[in-house]
Every structure is written in structure tokens, then in C-alpha cells.
């Protein structure tokens, strides 16, 4: 999917410069914003970091859906702290993208115009309180899988943003797992909600790693550039291997009849998610795409007067000393 967008950017950069750039990356050097980089590298990073930033922002919505209904004051406080972190992650990432010459407003407008994506997972609804547990446990769990290796990514500002973000993510996953533990050990209704949440979030979580590498044309280039550190399938396998024992501990059933431990490979065999559904969700046909984008559009439109007002005040402040002279 993203691959098609990148292909055309196969650059006409000078081969010698390209080779020198690649040598720096191979030597484990960090690339900093002011330094020369191939156009393809810059564009791929803008898309990847921007998409990641958008995911943090849109990701506030499914959890925000339950902040007002959190069942205890403690849970409400924890969820608020988590969602506040996610907004902070968005901020770090937009700042990292800005170093590549694209502003936060430009990225936001691209998101609202449907020209940029965010993680497909946030187009699924949070229907019960257990979903908030499942989101923390599975969605933040998958995000951690994706993000931990990216701490070593070649682009300096991205790598540093990832280091800050990863510090906070493990708390997110723990609070989600803790909700699930309470639900899975709770009343009959709570156990039902816990299993139902796992049923609905399992495959969408597997989709978070993207399609199989066989179908991902630009993976190789991104990996050579250390923008991508592992293949989608590697990370998905790791996620399944980590999560299945946790589900067993909770006494919940992973909704995959073909899930089996494979001693030979030292990991689980598992069913692929429905990739047709994945591509439909990316196209805008997921259960909540319209609501999510509408919410972001409304926040943007309703906030225009605030942003304009702040700018107008700043402009007055700048001109004030001159006027006084």
C-alpha cells in the first residue's frame, strides 16, 4: 500500500552521494536534519513519522470514549494520564517531522484531506470497558513491538522521540493488562466483556504490523536505510509469541482455532488476519473511520478561532514595543 507511494521516489540522487549516505547508515551513524539525505529517505520518513503522529492523536478518541465512563476514580486518573501521554507522543513526533521541513499544520491538513493515514486499529470501536483493557494490552503491546526497535532508527530526531515514547509505553500496556486481569477474574458479565474484547481486537492488532513482507515492495529500501528495523512478519510473530501466554494467564481464549505451538520454529503458528478487511479499513470503510476523521475535522474547525486568536495576540505583543517608542 505505502509501497506504491514510495516507488516513484526512487531518486535521481548522485550515486556517489547515495553510497556515502548508505555507508554512514551501515556504520550506525545517526542522520541529523541539517545533513544531506536522499529525497526518498526524507519523504519516507515524513510519511512514516507523520502517520505515527496522527495515530497517537486519533488514538486518543477510542480511549477518550471511556474516560467519562471509567468505573473508579483511580481508573479515570490512570486513563487520563495515558491519553495525555499519547497526545505528548503526537507532539514529539510532529516535532521530529518538522525537522524534515513539514509543519504540523500541513500534516494535519493532509490527514484531514485523506492524503495521510493513521493506524487502522483506531477505526475499531471501544464498546465496553474491557475494550479499554484490550487496547492497552494489545494495541499498546503491538505498538511497543513496533517502536522498541525504532529507538535505533537512523534518523536522529525520530530515534530520540522513540526513546522518550518507549519509556511511557510500558506503563500503557501494564494498565491495560491490569484492567483485563480484573475483568477476566470478575463477574460473569465482566468475563464476557473481557473475552468479547479479545475476540474483537485480536485480528485488528495483528494487522497493526502491516501486510506480509512478501507484499511490501519498499520494505527492503526502508530496511537498508534503517527506517524500518524488522520485517512486518517478524514483529507479528514476536507479538503473538508474547501475547498468547498472557491470554492463557488471563484464562481467555485467543480467537484462532489454528493457533498452535510450533516447537520446531520455537513460536506459535497462527492464522493470518483478513487482509481484505485491512485494506477496506485503510480505504475508509472501517467501522469508525468516518467518526474518527469527523471528530478530528471538527476539533480543527472549531479550534480555528482559538489558534487565530493566539496568533493575533502574539502579533500584538510583537508590535507593542515598537508602537510604544
Amino acid at each position: 500500500m505505502y509501497a506504491q507511494m514510495v516507488k516513484s521516489e526512487a531518486t535521481q540522487d548522485d550515486p556517489e552521494a547515495l553510497a556515502a549516505f548508505q555507508a554512514r547508515i551501515d556504520a550506525g551513524e545517526k542522520i541529523e536534519p541539517k545533513e544531506w539525505m536522499p529525497e526518498g529517505y526524507r519523504k519516507t520518513l515524513i510519511r512514516q513519522i507523520g502517520q505515527h503522529a496522527h495515530s497517537e492523536i486519533v488514538g486518543q478518541l477510542p480511549e477518550g470514549n471511556w474516560i467519562t465512563r471509567a468505573p473508579t476514580l483511580e481508573r479515570k486518573a490512570i486513563l487520563l494520564a495515558k491519553v495525555q501521554d499519547e497526545a505528548g507522543h503526537g507532539l514529539y513526533l510532529y516535532c521530529a517531522a518538522e525537522t524534515l521541513g513539514v509543519s504540523r499544520d500541513e500534516l494535519t491538513e493532509a490527514l484531514l484531506a485523506g492524503k495521510m493515514k493513521y493506524s487502522s486499529i483506531f477505526n475499531y470501536p471501544t464498546l465496553t470497558w474491557a475494550d479499554i483493557g484490550a487496547v492497552g494490552w494489545l494495541v499498546d503491546g503491538a505498538a511497543i513491538m513496533n517502536q522498541v526497535p525504532l529507538q535505533r532508527t537512523s534518523f536522529g530526531p525520530y530515534s530520540r522521540a522513540m526513546i522518550r515514547i518507549c519509556k511511557e509505553e510500558s506503563f500503557h500496556q501494564r494498565q491495560g493488562f491490569d484492567i483485563m486481569r480484573k475483568m477476566a477474574n470478575g463477574t460473569k458479565a465482566q468475563r464476557h466483556m473481557a473475552q468479547d474484547a479479545l475476540n474483537r481486537f485480536w485480528y485488528p492488532s495483528l494487522m497493526m504490523f502491516g501486510p506480509s513482507d512478501k507484499d511490501s515492495v519498499h520494505s527492503a529500501q526502508s530496511m537498508a536505510w534503517k527506517i524500518k528495523m524488522n520485517t512486518n512478519d517478524e514483529l507479528r510473530q514476536k507479538f503473538v509469541d508474547q501475547t498468547v501466554p498472557q491470554a492463557e494467564y488471563l484464562g481467555l481464549t485467543v480467537p484462532d482455532p489454528d493457533l498452535r505451538w510450533n516447537a520446531e520454529k520455537g513460536g506459535y503458528d497462527f492464522s493470518e488476519p483478513d487482509w481484505t478487511e485491512f485494506f477496506e479499513v485503510l480505504k475508509g470503510n472501517g467501522p469508525c473511520n468516518a467518526e474518527r476523521l469527523a471528530a478530528r475535522q471538527k476539533a480543527w474547525d472549531d479550534g480555528a478561532w482559538v489558534r487565530d486568536g493566539l496568533m493575533a495576540h502574539a502579533a500584538k505583543q510583537r508590535s507593542a514595543p515598537i508602537a510604544a517608542e
Binding site: 487520563l80 507532539l91 479550534g303
Partner: peptide
């Protein structure tokens, strides 16, 4: 204040509102 979550006019306000609510 927590009702604002994800709907604030600027990202900095999303963070500040969540912090206030917290």
C-alpha cells in the same frame, strides 16, 4: 474537562486539559 479529550483546538491544549482533569 475530561470530555475534551481528543477534541481540543491545539495539541498543547489536549495535553493541558488532560493534565488539569487529572
Amino acid at each position: 474537562v475530561s470530555e475534551w479529550c481528543g477534541h481540543a483546538p491545539v495539541l498543547e491544549e489536549d495535553i493541558a486539559l488532560a493534565n488539569t482533569a487529572l
